[in-house]
Design a protein around this nucleic acid. Sequence first.
DNA 1: GCTAACCGCAACAGTCTTGTTGCGAATAAT
DNA 2: ATTATTCGCAACAAGACTGTTGCGGTTAGC
Lengths: 187, 187
Amino acid sequence: MTTKVGRPLRADAERTVRAILEAAERVLAQDPAASMERIAEEAGVNRTTIHRRFASREALLEAMTLAALGQVREAIEAGRPETAPPEVALHQITANVLAVKLGWRFALTRPAPEGSPAARAQEEIVHRCDTLLAKVQRAGLIRPDVDVTWARQVYYALLYQALESAEPADLDARAALVVRTLLHGIG
Amino acid sequence: MTTKVGRPLRADAERTVRAILEAAERVLAQDPAASMERIAEEAGVNRTTIHRRFASREALLEAMTLAALGQVREAIEAGRPETAPPEVALHQITANVLAVKLGWRFALTRPAPEGSPAARAQEEIVHRCDTLLAKVQRAGLIRPDVDVTWARQVYYALLYQALESAEPADLDARAALVVRTLLHGIG
DNA sequence: GCTAACCGCAACAGTCTTGTTGCGAATAAT
DNA sequence: ATTATTCGCAACAAGACTGTTGCGGTTAGC
């Protein structure tokens, strides 16, 4: 359960919820143990307002993660993994996902609680990723003997690392670096 | 400042300190927000005993990180980065560091506070790592155009990933996988 | 064996956090 | 224009956690 109320929210309330989610991301990215008070302050909102929309701290985190994963999902779909040529899709998706991850560093790093909707969303994305990588492998860009799971883990690790490192500044350049390193290493 | 007392500890106190550090690693690896009470319980010790040895929770974390970084340092030196042939050293150090990281997952993942001794130790290790990779590069195993910083980041990322993934079980096999992926990618 | 160090235990103080409730003013939606 | 929603504010309850102190029995080290 994400929000407390089921009925559709008024426009201003909707805006407030988004502001809270985004503030939470900003604050928690800096300090994962930050209090609700601190998040409320960053959102320009009273602490009680957060509790009005989210049943608990946990619920807020869940909502953040779900929102972020939704955007990752869109980022993947925008790369047309099914139809585009594998190498094009790989590059495009890498760039798109990097962009999303830049804005949702905390939410996307946090391990989702077992069995939660967020965990399911994560699994679905993992599955899509595996499908894409398998396709790339069939296209001959990945050696046939490489385990897809290991391929995905390395891909994830490189995506994460490309976020931490400051350069290159350009998103496409970063994506290219990730893909090149993934496929050919540095040797 | 790590411990509260400057004078040499009695043998049993020394043992207790080690037990606390190791218990903290086990507990915090599972739940980074675990309380001192929980850590004390795991160490088979009263909570006040922890406070007798460590001025604060922060001090305990610092001590853990320092201890772990010391072991990493030993793991690197045991690989003879200066004298052994680059590829041998790279493999050996990878295996050694993986072994240490397995036991100090939390302490080595936690970002060290700015300016702390732990931060300095981390920087020194980064420097040693860069030196090693530069040597590997001069030996022709890494392309000359690859940035050493990026090389190190990818290396770190692969080390981390090799910890998360369950297989292969054998440490040397894991190290080989890391080195191979680092140098040649998966394509 | 003497002595200082060690550690469990009980109790306490203080702070911080989460989560709740009720009221009243502002505002979106019809 | 009316009405229900929204949100700031103040206050409260409950609990968790950190850090401290004093006492007393036990144990390591000389």
